[in-house]
Simulated scan of single mutants.
Amino acid sequence: MIEASRAGQYIRQLEGYRAFIPNPLPPVPEIMMDQDMWNLLSQADRALGRLDGATDALPNPDLFVFMYVRKEAVLSSQIEGTQASLIDVLEFESQALEPDNPQEVEEVVNYISAINYGLARLQELPISLRLVREIHQELMKGVRGAERNPGEFRRSQNWIGAGGCSLAEATYVPPPPYEMLQSLNNLEKFLHSTLPMPTLIKVGLAHAQFETIHPFLDGNGRTGRLLITLLLCEQDILQRPLLYISYYFKKYRAEYYDCLQAVRDNGSWENWLKFFLQGVYEAAQEATKTARTIVSLKEEHRQLVLSEMGRRSGNAIALLESLYFRPIFTVEHATTVTNLSYPNANTLVKDLSNIGLLQEITGQKRNRAFSYAPYLAVFQDS
């Protein structure tokens, strides 16, 4: 029988509310590795290995990283209620169109910056409280919540609950600031501990503990999900940030929150870890399938261009290659890539549209923007 206080306990504060004070990791009693847990762990490990192998074999792995990072950023932000879509973000980055929701798009663009910043910093700094603060600062720079001390651990009590609820009505109250700092120090020690433990189990425990501590006034969910990607890369489980587990968390959003809360209320670490491992497995499978789809799509489109466009196919292929990093673009972009005059670049774009590879997305006669529609479609539902 697992004790409810295994993950920590609710302590009544002087002001009358009860806050949760987490126990240090790893859990005591230790994680029960039953057959189901071993199977899920093995399945998730194998799927990550396949994903790493599939991308290793690619002629240009960065091409995939570009879109995966953006997809993860969009999905992780959507879990927090942001409405910006992948298309919104790509339009914003291409400067082809003004977004309807600039504030929300900037939140997602910050997430992309935070992933890239974190990966670069890992070359010189291990995952630590310092790195977590730096990543949070990137995430919150100049967007909603920017007034709430980006890059600084909170110095006041926060809580989780329905919009506008009071502390007394909260669903969950994390540790108060003094206890929070102790919990964060314990988490950092756990991350740097050399005690043998399967990496995915360690990453799953660390994510849940981070969300339980909730150390910032805003942006905790996104920072905690970023931590998953960075830990997987730091531990060499993945060479590149090619796992968007936020797809799984968003799809099973209620269960995601319920599993995290059950850890606090009932010490149900095993249920959370099984949910997490299943998510890693599904996300890795999805990413491998998408990588393979894009390899065949690239070859199929190359052959189509060669057969349909004759001697103009060199410029057409050069333009298409550039669109893997900029799938929404204007004719000006085509002129830059191909060195063609504007009228000739315009004709090239028109010809590629006629064979179904490009699509005009503004419906205007002037200042038109185009998308590499079949490529974007691969990412729309995954």
Rank of each mutant, 00 (worst) to 15 (best):
L376I: 11
V108R: 07
D218T: 05
L232W: 03
L226C: 09
D218H: 04
E72R: 05
L122K: 00
A369N: 07
T229E: 04
L340P: 02
H301R: 07
V108F: 09
D100R: 12
M140A: 07
E300K: 15
V203H: 08
A316I: 13
W38A: 05
E308F: 04
L320Q: 04
G142K: 12
W38E: 07
I355Y: 06
F329G: 01
G161R: 08
Y324A: 05
R264H: 03
L304G: 02
L231V: 03
T199Y: 05
E255N: 11
G151T: 12
R292V: 09
M309L: 15
M197Y: 03
Q380A: 14
I317R: 07
Y172V: 05
E107A: 09
P27A: 09
S382T: 15
G16Q: 11
A168C: 00
E188G: 03
S382M: 05
S76Y: 02
F92E: 03
L51G: 09
S76T: 15
T194P: 01
L277R: 10
G142V: 10
L58N: 06
Q278K: 13
E91L: 12
R155H: 13
L273V: 08
P29Q: 01
W38K: 06
Q78C: 06
P102R: 04
K251Y: 09
L243C: 07
P102L: 06
K202Q: 14
R225M: 07
M140R: 10
P59R: 11
N149R: 15
S296I: 11
R311V: 11
E286H: 07
Q359W: 00
Y10N: 10
K350D: 06
L119W: 00
A318M: 08
K141Q: 13
Y17K: 01
Y247E: 15
L191G: 00
T347H: 03
A54H: 03
E98I: 08
V143Q: 08
N158L: 06
S246W: 07
S307E: 14
L273F: 10
E188Q: 15
T171V: 05
A206D: 09
R253H: 12
Q13G: 10
S296P: 00
